[in-house]
Simulated scan of single mutants.
Amino acid sequence: MTTSAPLRRRAVGATYNLRDIGDYPAGSGARTRWGRLFRSDAARFADGADLAALSLRTVIDLRDDAEVAALPTGLDTFVPAVLRRPLDPRSLLSALNGDSVDVLGELYVALVRERGPQLARIVADLARPGALPALVHCAAGKDRTGVVIALVLSAIGVPDDVVATDYALTTEYLTPEFFAAVPTESGAGDPADESLRGARAESMAGLLRALAADHGGARAYLVGHGVPDEAIDHLRTALTH
């Protein structure tokens, strides 16, 4: 169903978790194309040599001002459009059930319920003609990035179990070495907080179930928040073959 190497994980820049979402089934015999949409943690890119292989036209940075200041990527030097689209999940954490067995799953549901307009704008950004190839990243490439990529994949017809498995691949790359290497201010998470460091497939599966129950699925959720049907159709065409 998925593979972690060599095509899925891309060793570009000083990243730990830069991955291609190609070769996933997307219904009616279609599959997602390699080299069109990438997901990643934040990293510094000293030069554009490795980055050139991705041919990026758009980068969507989901971090807030403090995170960007703590770890500037330099991507605006090499990519035509670098869009700042902060999602700020930390403000939602205090309202969650601290005793939950799946804090991250609850956080993801809270994100889609409280950040609908922002999430819709991000998907619309990706659906613009000429926007791809694109990279979506936050600090660790796990939570905010995970929700955005899940919405995109689910909206274009990728099955829930595949979406959840793609999300869970993060556990292979966000090692203790990753958390030790990034500054705390970068937003990548507190290395001592195990409840926020994981990437269980069930956390993402729970979000997808909530989208189905509350909205009829990711596509209907995005349309309900202002993304035109034709934009999602364009995104599916651009991402699949």
Rank of each mutant, 00 (worst) to 15 (best):
194 E>T: 15
193 D>H: 02
109 V>L: 02
167 Y>Q: 04
196 L>R: 07
204 M>K: 05
169 L>S: 06
128 R>N: 03
202 E>D: 13
101 V>K: 10
133 P>G: 11
208 L>Y: 08
189 G>K: 06
96 L>Y: 06
144 R>T: 04
200 R>L: 04
155 A>M: 05
175 T>I: 04
206 G>V: 00
184 T>D: 14
94 S>W: 02
123 V>L: 08
204 M>S: 01
166 D>E: 15
205 A>Y: 09
89 P>A: 09
174 L>S: 02
108 Y>C: 01
135 L>K: 15
141 G>T: 12
177 E>H: 09
94 S>M: 13
121 R>C: 12
201 A>K: 07
153 L>T: 10
128 R>A: 15
120 A>Q: 02
98 G>N: 12
218 A>Y: 14
95 A>N: 13
162 V>H: 03
218 A>V: 13
109 V>A: 05
180 A>F: 07
94 S>F: 01
126 L>W: 06
194 E>W: 08
98 G>H: 12
185 E>D: 15
167 Y>V: 03
85 R>W: 03
97 N>W: 00
89 P>D: 13
131 A>K: 11
166 D>N: 14
112 V>F: 07
222 L>G: 04
87 L>A: 14
96 L>G: 12
221 Y>A: 01
137 H>N: 10
168 A>R: 13
137 H>I: 06
146 G>W: 08
188 A>L: 09
139 A>F: 13
88 D>W: 00
100 S>A: 12
178 F>R: 04
141 G>R: 14
170 T>R: 00
170 T>H: 00
139 A>H: 14
184 T>W: 00
220 A>W: 14
183 P>S: 13
84 R>A: 15
221 Y>W: 13
103 V>H: 06
203 S>Q: 04
124 A>F: 05
194 E>Y: 10
